[in-house]
């Protein structure tokens, strides 16, 4: 390489590097800034309570699921093998098999139970991810970086709740109407419920909670003593999915 060419290249490189600190001026952060949520009592701990005595009173109600699917650009793929699910219904005796037995109340046994990512306190999916594409935020929300995920699906194998979905094909043709407020995903990456972190950042409730007009879903900060979730959890008997695994789910069910 000639001396002249070398100098040209060096100047170009240096000027490139010097631009970097200012690059953020032109981009938006990929995820909501959680410092907004910092209160004088420290960081929040988000949790959800599903009240099974209210949820499902309206026969075949899917308001919460529809709201989530709409705002998160979730594809509607008919082939169950390739389906993408963030929040969905499953029968009680499948969700809580260890709590089901012969001669139990048949209505409860076959009852539809909402399931979603539990945002575990000890998330196995986070430990196994080889690229830190999934991680637990300081406020407990388990996040996904769709741009870093290599699609190895180790997290799917590690999740005890089946809460994670893989994009087996390009999801975009299967989205009815794309919501510009949330990114669509590409084929070959994993996704799941994000507790509506993008809405929490704007002081809004998660879409599913807002959509439930019966009040069957309660969301809030368990670190706050006067929050509704905290009150319910401290006064009523609640159950969680597979508590013996020690994952500490933050989605609670009351009967």
């Amino acid at each position: 390489m000639k001396r002249r060419d070398f100098l040209k290249l060096a100047i170009l490189t240096l000027s490139g590097i010097s631009i970097k600190p200012f690059a953020h001026l032109f981009t938006k952060p990929a995820f909501a800034d959680i410092s907004i949520q910092r209160t004088n009592k420290g960081l929040p701990r988000w949790a959800m309570v599903v009240n099974l005595s209210i949820c499902g009173k309206k026969d075949g109600c899917t308001d919460c699921i529809d709201a989530c699917n709409r705002i998160h650009n979730i594809p509607r793929i008919t082939n169950p093998k390739h389906a993408v699910k963030w929040i969905w219904n499953a029968p009680f005796d499948r969700v809580f098999r260890e709590q089901s037995f012969d001669n139990m109340n048949e209505g409860l046994r076959k009852k539809s139970v909402l399931v979603l990512c539990n945002h575990c306190e000890n998330p196995p999916c986070v430990s196994v991810c080889p690229t830190k594409a999934t991680w637990k935020r300081e406020d407990g929300i388990v996040m996904m970086d769709y741009h870093r995920c290599i699609g190895c699906r180790y997290c799917i194998a590690a999740c005890p709740y089946g809460a994670r979905s893989f994009n087996w094909k390009d999801p975009r043709p299967y989205i009815k109407e794309i919501d510009k407020g949330f990114p669509t995903r590409t084929q070959g990456v994993v996704e799941k419920c994000n507790f509506c972190e993008e809405r929490i950042a704007k002081n809004l409730l998660p879409a599913c909670v807002e959509a439930c007009r019966e009040g069957g879903l309660i969301f809030g900060d368990v670190n706050k003593e006067d929050s509704e979730v905290r009150k319910i959890l401290s006064t009523r008997l609640s159950i969680r999915r597979k508590p013996h695994l020690g994952t500490e789910p933050k989605v609670y069910y009351i009967l």
């Binding site: 986070v126 430990s127 690229t131 870093r148 290599i150 190895c152």
Partner: peptide, 25 residues
């Protein structure tokens, strides 16, 4: 392993963002 990846072009993320808690690493 590579043919099983959904995003094989990103395989070097394992080196760029190594996670010591992952057995795959």
């Amino acid at each position: 392993i590579v043919v099983d990846l959904g995003q094989p072009s990103r395989v070097f993320n394992i080196l760029l963002y190594p996670s010591f808690s992952s057995l795959l690493f």
